[in-house]
């Protein structure tokens, strides 16, 4: 399974956490498309806590966290 965590506005109309079977998803981009998230809305993509690009491969057991543009301090 791949655990996908959604944050802030990306939760609107979606669950906070989505568990996906790893088969059928080769990259993070596949997951973003599967969840019907417009590409431009994801500003920060973490895989297992590290910043990655959407082309990064995903595998069973990964935690994928998706954030819209955020700032603070």
């Amino acid at each position: 399974m791949i655990e996908v965590r959604l944050f802030a506005t990306l939760r609107q109309g979606r669950e906070k956490v989505v568990m996906l079977e790893s088969q059928g998803f080769s990259t993070a981009r596949d997951i973003i498309e599967h969840l019907d998230i417009p590409a431009g809305e994801v500003s920060i993509l973490l895989i297992n806590g590290f910043h990655k690009t959407p082309d990064t491969e995903v595998k069973d057991g990964d935690i994928v966290a998706l954030f819209p543009p955020v700032g603070g301090g």
């Binding site: 944050f7 543009p69 955020v70």
Partner: peptide
């Protein structure tokens, strides 16, 4: 034109950082 300063901070404030900073451990 910047989503952080136009809407992001208004919607969730600086508190938005709790989850992201936790998710980078």
């Amino acid at each position: 034109a910047n989503p952080v300063t136009s809407s992001g901070l208004k919607q969730l404030g600086t508190a938005i950082l709790v989850n992201i900073i936790n998710n980078v451990g």
